[in-house]
Amino acid sequence: MDKANLLKLLDRVPYAKTLGIQLTGDPERCLLPARKSNIGNPTLPALHGGAIAGFMELSAMSLVLQHTDAERVPKVVDYSVDYVRAGKFCDTHSRCELVYLGRRMINVRVSAWQEDEASPIAMARVQFLLKDTPW
């Protein structure tokens, strides 16, 4: 799927709008602008771990869509995230790496960071299953 079609698809995904994820010129990189609705801890303040996880999952999904002919949102079989630093209330970036692209299974590694790419706030891996019908 090219970027124009991906933008059109993402525009129709309400959850992507709820988080506020943005694509960049690089298919491997996405941006999550600081937004109050993603805060989980108002005292620090810090982003909700679930919002960071959702952002990373969507980032991986957009990379997969740009690498395949899939016209629909691919299914996630399993997802694992390691949190290493608190997500501050500021812009968050993601970078995805396509680890394995098979006919049925796709594995993507994702890291999320804020000020410095070398100091991630979380790392994740996502296993996708490509199938026309769900499960």
Binding site: Y15, H48, G54, E57, Y79
Partner: peptide, 14 residues
């Protein structure tokens, strides 16, 4: 998934 209306896995994760 706008085709089916199924909620995103990210929300389940959260």
């Amino acid at each position: 998934d706008p085709e089916t209306g199924v909620i995103h896995g990210g929300a389940i994760t959260a």
